[in-house]
Nucleic acid binder design. Structure first.
Length: 552
RNA sequence: GUGCCCGUAGCUCAAUGGAUAGAGCAUCAGCCUUCUAAGCUGAGGGUUACUGGUUCGAGUCCAGUCGGGCGCACCA
């Protein structure tokens, strides 16, 4: 709609002799009595024009030239808002557009020819995925879907490390449990992984090898088996949520020398050193972040000679630039909040365009069961497992609940609610609308023999002029803008909210307007409108990764 | 102590700096001989934590205060 109003308003300002660098806002008033769309441009420019805003608005109106039959009414209201009312014709033409575009409706071309990288989940294979990780996973997946709607060629990447100290501890943990299983008395350090899954892996090894590995105490084998089992379990869990990655980036790559015998990690140190941001002291190599106003320098290479996580992180991000991504999105949980500023600073120093990087941080998840709030703790092994949650409430509810709140808000996951097969449950409210339309179309075909999907009598839509019909049509017209907003804010939650209101408007239409029982032409028109609604619901569900049931 | 996020109806949450702060749940009152009532209509419910500031206009931006969450390692 922006594209529709913007040029008209711009040229009106121009012919009214108003020059301004203020941005022209097209907004949807909260109340329909203020029009379908409105602009505050007169309010914004009144001061610099030294004019009364209402008077200015009237003058601007005088210069507005819209295509015929698009705008029904323009008025000045309040302090100086200009409110626009669309014609029914315009609205129904948009509905026709939905039918013509089908699965493509709502897509755009902003990102055409550009590549976007979305990195998410990125859990190291040290244990099964927790509920907290699930939120980031679904968020990342939806963000990737949003980018795809705008024509970006999206790579979904998973960054992991199977070589570091945590993996060492994992190997030791499994080995100890294995030895225990073999009947040896062991001491299990509190620093090690306490989860039951460690015992299960040990059990698997025991079943396969018996006690034959108990003498060797060779860590590698335990580590490898554990990694294999855990990684495949992670992928299986993600698969249940329809989360699939195109690319798995192993941190190990960054320790591997290139043709000149230098590792990406070393190259980072060299480059930062050239720019004066590296120093050695206390036996370690430091990134001089104090030069950037931070309290402490950050260790890049530990006194043991191993890089700290920060160094490969920087090197990893350089590969994102080298791989030529126009947009680089990082999705992670609030516990990693301190991780990225150093990376960004380093990239800036090295001359990369950090404006291409977008960070989406999701806040934590608590689960409520029987009204009791459980707090997540990854340590102790009492963390809630994502798999258990999916078992409990299903994939659709899991996905939708994870993204139906703003990523900046703490998420209170009400397990009982998600399980409910009733209207209280937003998943069912949305899916019910879709199923209801499917049922309606089936019934219509049976009763009248009319199938809107294979008819081109779209012009009949113009017979629809009631409040409920126009509201539904308007909601459909709004969909492409919702996608763009969602993408800009990296906030799929907007989509959930939109779809909920679309479902609501549809239910009202369904309630008020008889369809199959209406006169033939009206019946057809309403079936077109219903079909278009189903199309938008489907397109939206696809972005959210929620299924669209034909019947319930 | 410090960095980030949050504080909005009884509960869970919305609100690109805009007009009378909105949904759902819960409560109360209506609507099925009629296309799925898993639905719809209506009512009640608010000092947007607090105090200042910025401006035509603040839940939103700025400063401070108070509460809650998450980080603050030569772990990742």
């Amino acid at each position: 709609m922006h594209e529709f109003f913007l040029p008209v308003i711009q040229s009106a300002l121009c012919s009214a002799g108003i020059e301004t660098n203020k941005q022209i806002n097209i907004e949807q008033p909260s109340d329909k009595k203020f029009g379908d769309f409105s602009t505050n441009i007169a309010l914004l420019t009144a001061k610099e024009c030294r004019r009364n805003p209402r008077e200015l608005a009237l003058e601007i109106i005088g210069h507005l030239v819209f295509p015929p039959d698009t705008i029904a009414k323009i008025e000045v209201a309040g302090a100086g808002f200009i409110n626009f009312y669309l014609t029914p014709l315009f609205i129904m033409q948009s509905v026709e557009q939905v039918l013509l575009d089908g699965d493509e409706y709502g897509k755009g071309g902003i990102g055409k020819g550009e590549r976007a990288l979305v990195e998410y989940v990125s859990a190291n294979p040290t244990g099964p995925l927790t509920i907290g990780r699930g939120r980031g996973g679904v968020l990342g997946d939806c963000i990737a879907n949003l980018f795809e709607t705008q024509g970006y060629e999206v790579t979904r990447e998973y960054y992991f490390n199977d070589a570091g100290r945590q993996m060492q501890i994992l190997g030791e943990s499994v080995m100890l449990r294995y030895l225990e299983r073999c009947g040896k008395v062991i001491e299990f350090p509190p620093t090690h992984y306490q989860g039951e899954y460690i015992r299960e892996i040990a059990e698997t090894i025991y079943n396969e090898h018996g006690t034959e590995l108990s003498a060797s105490s060779e860590l590698k084998i335990f580590k490898e088996i554990a990694e294999e089992i855990i990684f495949s379990s992670i992928r299986k869990t993600l698969d249940r949520l329809s989360i699939h990655h195109d690319s798995y980036f192993n941190e190990h790559t960054l320790y591997t020398p290139d043709k000149r015998g230098l590792t990406p990690n070393q190259n980072v140190i060299t480059a930062l050193r050239e720019r004066g941001f590296i120093a050695e002291y206390d036996g370690a190599t430091w990134f001089l972040t104090t030069k950037l106003g931070q309290e402490k320098d950050k260790v890049l290479i530990k006194s043991s000679g191993e890089p700290s996580y920060r160094l490969p992180d920087i090197a990893y991000h350089i590969t994102k630039f080298e791989r030529n991504f126009a947009v680089i999105v990082n999705v992670f949980g609030a516990d990693h909040i301190d991780e990225y500023p150093d990376v960004i600073e380093a990239l800036k120093i090295l001359g990369f365009d950090t404006g291409r990087i977008k960070i989406a941080i999701n806040q934590f998840v608590t689960t409520t069961v029987d009204g009791q709030t459980l707090k997540m703790s990854t340590r102790k092994g009492n963390a809630d497992l994502l798999d258990d949650l999916i078992d409990d409430v299903g994939a659709d509810a899991t996905r939708l609940f994870f993204i139906m709140r703003s990523k900046d808000s703490h998420l209170n996951f009400d397990v009982e609610l998600a399980k409910k097969q009733s209207k209280d449950n937003p998943v069912f409210y949305l899916q019910y609308a879709h199923a209801r339309i499917c049922s309606l179309l089936r019934m219509a075909l049976q009763e009248t023999g009319f199938d809107p999907a294979s008819s081109s009598e779209h012009h009949l839509l113009h017979l629809l002029t009631s409040q409920a019909e126009l509201q539904l049509g308007f909601a459909l017209l709004d969909y492409p803008a919702m996608i763009k907003t969602s993408l800009r804010l990296l906030e799929p939650q907007k989509m959930v909210e939109y779809l909920h209101s679309l479902a609501e408007v549809f239910h009202r239409f369904y309630q008020e307007c008889p369809i199959i029982k209406a006169k033939p032409d009206i019946c057809k028109a309403r079936l077109f409108l219903s079909l278009a609604t189903r199309q938008v619901l489907r397109n939206g569900f696809r972005i959210l990764g929620v299924s669209a049931p034909e019947s319930m």
